[in-house]
Amino acid sequence: MPSENLVEIQELNFTYDVRPVLQGINMHFPRGKVVAIMGLSGCGKTTLLRLIGGQLKPSSGQVQVAGQTIHTLDREGLFRMRRRMGMLFQFGALYTDMSVFDNVAFQMREHTDLPESLIRDLVLLKLEAVGLRGAHNLMPTELSGGMARRVALARAIALDPMLMLYDEPFAGLDTISLGVIGNLIRHLNDALGATSIVVTHDVQESLKIVDYIYFMSEGRVIAEGTPDELRAADTGFVHQFVHGEIDGPMPFHYPGAGYAEDLALDVAHA
C-alpha cells in the first residue's frame, strides 16, 4: 500500500564546502496536494529542490520519493525516477536552438518510440493546456517571459509526471502572467493527479493556490501551516514576510561593523 505522502524529507542536512545550507529539515508532501516552500532569497530553497531531484546528494538525512531514497539510487534508477518528475526552471530553460514544438516534444522523442504523428497530437494537446497551441512554430526567443514560462510548463508535463517541481515560477512576471501561471499550477496538478512542490518568495500569489506552506529561513523550517493559518499569524517572521514589512525579525541591514566605525574610517583616510 503506497504511503500517504509522495515525498518525505527526514532530518536532511546539506553542507556546501563548510557552509551549512540546510539543517535538520523535516517535510512531507501528501499526494495530490500543492505545497509551497517559501523564504527569502538564499535560504536554501533551490538547494532543497535539487536534493529532491537528485542533482545534489545530502550530507546526512534522506529524501524519499514514492518510497525510494533518492541519493541511494544509481544513475539508471535516478533517471527512471526523473522521468516521472517534471521541473519548471526559474526562467523556463527552454532549448533556444529548437522551436516551441520541438521543446515540448523533446522528452517524448528522447524517451519513447512514439510515431511522429502521435507526438504531434500529444504536443498540441500539452500546448493547448497552457493556451499556446497557436505558438508552436515560434522560436523561444520570440516569446515573452510569461509565454516562455508556459511553454516550459507544457514541456515539464509532457510525460504526465507524478511530481511537479517549480523553481520560482512567479519570478519576473507581470501581474496578469502571474495569475495565469498560478492558475495553471493548480489546475494542472488537479488534472494530472500529481503532487506539486512550489519554491517561491511570492507570498500573495502562492497563498491563493497552495494547500500547505513551509517557511524557511537560514536553512531551517521556521513555520508551517495552511494559508489561512499563516495569514492569521500576527507576530514574528511570518507576519513580516506575509505582509512584506521592511524591518522585523529579519534585519534590513547586512551584518557588519558599526556604521559610525565605518564612517570614521573614511574620515581617517580623507
Binding site: G53, Q55, L78, F79, R80, R82, R83, M85, M87, F89, Q90, F91, A93, L94, Y95, T96, F106, Q107, E110, H111, L165
Partner: peptide
Amino acid sequence: LMKATEQISAMEMMAVD
C-alpha cells in the same frame, strides 16, 4: 550559455544525459 540558462540542468531533470 546553455549551462547559465539552466538548459543543461533541465536536460538532466528530464532524465536525458
